[in-house]
Design a protein around this nucleic acid. Structure first.
Lengths: 341, 341
DNA sequence: TTGTAAGCGTTATCAT
DNA sequence: ATGATAACGCTTACAA
């Protein structure tokens, strides 16, 4: 371990600890010469402040906590990338915890972060989470929380999201404009907001375009192993309905499962059935046919969320009023082969 | 913030802080009744130890630092997953930093972790890193380091790796046994050990099977945007050589670039050219044709590395001798469509 | 401009 | 079985 401490520098220079501390932190009431001497000695002695002592004294840790459902997911690792980047810019470290989509684990993880006294928490809810008291408790204790991607509207905090409903609406409208008439939707489970919103966008787009909503065209994909879900449900769909000409999938992964099945049974994409994904993973450019999808800006979401959180941390520290913001990042249709005609 | 502290409990119970502390930590020299009272009161008052004070006092942080080149990569997010899992098992938190494959950034990040006084560091080297003094300095100061995946043999610490050379050797031998005669290699840049080892394995397999090594069949992929590298070099290769019948790529991503190009120009895989990848990303099952590859156990690598690191932390703490280990995890050929005949 | 001293919340030593 | 007290290394009123 590094052992130089303030007293060592003070002793070496024959001055007081206070003076050393102040000099190091650039206080103005220290003479330039003393300051210079201290700085030099600190450098020579390879001084590193004991962050635990600093934290104890200042009651902050310059650390952010992040809870995500899983790291092994292109979208979340992009988000993470954005968070790490902005945290680094602003001098914060980042502790990462996974909820594995489990409510109980999420509760445990948030508790760990509170114990660790992180200055703020970024989180995307697990699919199971439908009670938010664990989050509200943290906020009440003055640790700011910023929710991203899978959020709960009801929780009083800042949020960084995309407009899932509008994005889905746009996707389905796009399909309708392209002439597709019977559009199925592979939806996610009933709890997460974004699953609900994408479904609602789908429904609304149909209605606004005079296409009656048919519940039998909606397939539930809630097994977490998205890929298989898409595959299996594509099979079911083609057995149930012979006249479906397009599928709007809630994620690229499900879309890829669909494509895989359709390819296997030689159903031509997009000639017989078009497929529309959601997220714009790297993978969607690699599959054939290349997948039309919604670009969801993971990096930006992470970056913005971290930025807002750090802003709020500063505001709280300076006893300024904190005004929660909800930032909605734009999405974009990326047209590729799976829907062209 | 949570405000209950030891003094609060002591005051509420009319006993001393010492007794409370000891009771909470299960010291045997506290009466059962006192202990029970303390526990109950702590529970009631929702006591959470101030981890900064604990850290300052005990001089440990129960935190691991991780430095990886990038999070947005299937392999590294799998490793991360393994690390997070084992860290959680053993009561450690994890701080993650990215080097973005830059030596300078890597140096800065390791310095940050030391300042943060993490109990140990897990790292995979950046592609640029060819000097290891920053790592050795940390080890010398008694903070254990475990290197994984992209390691430096020369650094005196524990390591978790696969046998890249053998895996590559096996891959190429497999191709030769399948009857492929003219096998190209798309290699990585010259610095990272695994890039070198995979190349050496390739070369050795040729030699052991009486196939003369031809340097013109080795293409360098060092642009970090692997995918394009594979695509571009596949193009070059097919222009340079008309008789190559197989390509062994250093990563799946490069292999996918190759497949993409070959698909575009209608070269049949594996009939005209076989493609062999490395890593077994999820993506390799999704592309067509599905990619034959080497399975590289990311999760296990992370899990083991974390496990060894935590072992070493304990050993150091108890002043036991630390014996560095190098764990070699097995790899496996995953045969799929891109090489079958 | 510099220094004294208190205090952050915990743990550990040594008495009692 | 319990408690008084010092110590961890730093920051910050306040005093000089």
């Amino acid at each position: 371990m590094n052992d130089t401490k303030l007293t060592d520098i003070a002793f070496a220079l024959g001055i007081s600890v206070t003076t050393v501390s102040k000099a190091l932190k650039g206080y103005t009431d220290i003479s330039k010469t003393t300051r210079a001497k201290v700085l030099e000695m600190a450098e020579n002695m390879n001084y590193r402040p004991n962050i635990n002592a600093v934290n104890l004294r200042t009651n902050e840790t310059k650390t952010l906590g992040v809870i995500i459902p899983t790291t092994v997911h292109h979208f979340f690792s992009s988000v993470l990338n954005g968070i790490l980047e902005e945290a680094e810019n602003r001098g914060y470290l980042v502790i990462i915890l996974q909820s594995n989509e489990k409510y109980e684990l999420e509760k445990k993880q948030i508790e760990l972060l509170v114990q660790k006294r992180v200055d703020g928490i970024l989180m995307s809810l697990s699919n199971e989470t439908d009670d938010f008291s664990h989050i509200e408790a943290v906020i009440r204790k003055n640790t700011p929380v910023v929710l991203f991607d899978k959020i709960a509207k009801i929780v009083d905090c800042s949020k960084v999201v995309i407009n899932d409903r509008k994005a889905a609406y746009d996707a389905v409208t796009y399909l309708i404009r392209k002439g597709y008439k019977k559009i199925a939707h592979f939806r996610g489970s009933y709890v997460p907001q974004n699953s609900i919103d994408r479904f609602l966008g789908y429904k609304k787009a149909l209605e606004d375009n005079g296409i009656p909503y048919d519940p039998s065209l909606v397939y539930l994909c809630d097994h977490n192993t998205d890929f298989e879900d898409g595959y299996e449900n594509a099979k079911k769909l083609t057995e149930d309905h012979t006249d479906v000409d397009a599928i709007f999938a809630i994620t690229d992964l499900i879309a890829i499962g669909i494509i895989k099945y359709l390819n296997e049974v030689n159903i031509k994409i997009p000639e017989q059935i078009a497929v529309f994904g959601f997220s714009n993973w790297f993978m969607s450019t690699v599959i054939s046919p290349k997948l039309t999808t919604i670009d969801q800006p993971g990096y930006d979401i992470g970056f913005q969320a971290a930025s807002i959180l750090i802003d709020e941390i500063s505001q709280i520290k300076e006893h300024l009023p904190v005004i929660h913001r909800t930032v909605e990042l734009p999405t974009e249709i990326i047209e590729r082969e799976s829907t062209r005609r």
